[in-house]
Structures are given as C-alpha cells and as structure tokens.
C-alpha cells in the first residue's frame, strides 16, 4: 500500500504544479465565470414579472445565457480536460526511462497505474468542486438567490456525475498512453475518440436510423417511432450523450424524462400532464440512475482494460 500512497502524492503534486493544469483551470474558470455572469443578467430580466420563481439557483447552471449553459459546456469540454490530463501519463515515463526505474523499486506494479488514476480523479474533483462553488458565489452576489436544500443536493449529484464523466475520459487517455509509445500518437488517438463521440455518433445515428426505416414521416407514426428508437439506441453508445441526458434531468426538476417527447408512452404522457409540478430529487434520481450506472460501468471497464494491458506489458529499460 505504501507504494500507492507515494505515487499518488507525487502525481497529485505534479498535477497541481504543472503549467498544463494551470492553463486548463484558468480557461475553465474564465468560461464558467462568463457564463454565470451572462446567465444571471438574463435571469434578472426574466424573473421580473414572475411572482414566485422556482429553482432560480439551478437556472445558473442550465439556462443558456449567451451561447451555451454551464452543463453543456462541461459535457462538451469535460472530455478534453480528462484527455489533456492523462494522454502522456505512462508513455512519457516510459520514454524518459523513469518507469523502469520506479518498477525496479519494491512496489507492486499496479500501484503505479492506480496511483496515477486516483491522483487524476482527485484533481478533477477539486477542479469541478471549486468551479461550482465559484459559480454559486457569483450567483449569490449577482442575483441574491440562496439555494435550497433540494437544489444543493441536485448540484452535488451533478458534481458526482461530472467527476465520473471526466474520469472516464482520463481512463481513455491513460489507456492510450499505455498502448502507444509515442506521446503525440496517444494524444491524437484521444482526440479522435472525442471527436467521434461528440460529432459523428449523433450524426451517424441519424443516418443509420433513416437507412433502416426510410418510410418514416408525419403520416406514418409507427415507422417514425421505430426510427427514433434506433437513433436513440445508437446515440446512447456515446458517453457524451449519456452524460448530457443524465445531468439535464438532475439539474432541471421540470424535466420528467430523458426521452424525446414523441417517444413518451401514452401512460407516461398522461401522468406527466396530470402532474405539472417539478419532480422530487428522488424521482429525478430514479430516472437518471441507469445513466449514472452505465457511466460508472464504462469508466470501470476502461480502467480495467488499461490495468490488464499495463500489467502484461514487458518493461524494457530503453
């Protein structure tokens, strides 16, 4: 166990003292501050005529003030954080010859990869938590809203999902840094996966669904439904969509399902029309639970693959 602790401590210190982290952190901080500022400006105007506004605090995170909301920003930019933090964790050490030297010391081999992953996850957690706190503080100053307990809990759940999501991308980056000897190649591979999932999966899902069910239209509802089912199933393979759906329902209590409106079944439609009030946190959680579990599962799978590949690799000194 002591090996894990030593590696973890060193990696954490490395993250926090690196220029890479500083640049990344200031960039995210800047963007979130701008978003929070713009959102609070627009919310002020919108709230003027409403007698009893609900969940104003959560609006800070989900309302699209200028271009995009904070939640959308993390969904899109979060992968990049994980990739940038992890793409050279193993192969840089291999190329510099430090990996074989660490492994020649009396520690278990998995202490290296576990320590690196854990340190990354902790860094991500601190990053997310501090940004959410900054936005909260800014909201308090600009709008004077105090979050209720329900809202705080929702934000907490949102933070946990975000940490798992970014950790998944850290896992992807570490996997590539184990597989590829060259730092540039592993960075490129990570970027390729990111671009694939953020742009091509939703596009591809659309095309594939249309190819399967070509006769869908407003007059053929059954085919339309089938088309949407296929499209949805394919796009759920993307962690970005998984994350977006999960967080959208958590931070927006008025959203009662992650599915698109056309696809909502008749009974569900009836019940959601009857109860127009916001969902309780418990109900929101029930809706997104499968998404959260899937996210955790793919993160675990990704890390497990890295672990196995790393444990089986031959360690040569040069």
């Amino acid at each position: 166990m002591h090996g894990l602790k030593v590696i973890f401590k060193k990696e954490l210190a490395d993250h926090f003292s690196s220029y890479r982290f500083l640049i990344l952190f200031s960039l995210i901080c800047m963007v979130s501050l701008i978003i929070a500022y713009m959102v609070s400006m627009t919310i002020k105007n919108e709230m003027k005529d409403i007698a009893k506004p609900q969940f104003v605090f959560l609006m800070l995170f989900i309302s699209q003030g200028g271009l995009f909301s904070f939640v959308q920003f993390v969904a899109f930019f979060g992968p990049l954080i994980g990739l940038i933090m992890g793409f050279d964790l193993i192969n840089r050490e291999r190329n510099e010859g430090t990996l074989s030297r660490i492994l020649a010391q009396p520690i278990y081999r998995d202490a290296v990869i576990n320590g690196k992953f854990l340190a990354g996850v902790v860094t991500i957690s601190i990053m997310i938590a501090s940004i959410v706190l900054v936005i909260t503080g800014l909201g308090l100053i600009l709008m004077g809203v105090v979050p209720g307990i329900d809202e705080i809990l929702r934000i907490l759940v949102y933070m946990i999902i975000s940490i798992v999501y970014i950790s998944f991308w850290l896992g992807v980056a570490i996997l590539f840094s184990i597989i590829f000897r060259s730092v540039t190649t592993s960075a490129l591979a990570g970027l390729a996966v990111w671009i694939f999932f953020s742009f091509f999966v939703s596009l591809g899902a659309n095309i594939v669904a249309k190819a399967f069910v070509p006769d869908a239209g407003p007059d053929n509802l059954e085919a339309l439904l089938k088309q949407i089912t296929i499209q949805r199933a394919i796009s759920l393979s993307s962690p970005i969509i998984l994350y977006s759906d999960a967080t959208a329902t958590i931070v927006d209590p008025t959203k009662k399902t992650t599915r698109s409106f056309v696809f909502v079944g008749p009974f569900e439609k009836l019940s959601s029309e009857r109860f127009s009030g916001p969902l309780s946190l418990h109900q929101s959680l029930l809706i997104v639970l499968p998404y959260i579990i899937t996210l955790i599962a793919i993160t675990a799978i990704c890390f497990a693959i890295s672990y196995i590949v790393f444990m089986r690799q031959e360690i040569r000194s040069a």
Partner: peptide, 19 residues
C-alpha cells in the same frame, strides 16, 4: 518480485530522472 526489488539496486543504461 517485490522482495527481490527491495534487495537489489539497479542503475540502468539510460538513467531516467524526473527533470
């Protein structure tokens, strides 16, 4: 392996250090 690594000092050909 862990026990052996504790007993042996190893200085490889291309010494890697954290610069």
């Amino acid at each position: 392996a862990i026990k052996v690594k504790g007993l042996i000092g190893y200085m490889p050909e291309n010494m890697g250090f954290y610069n």
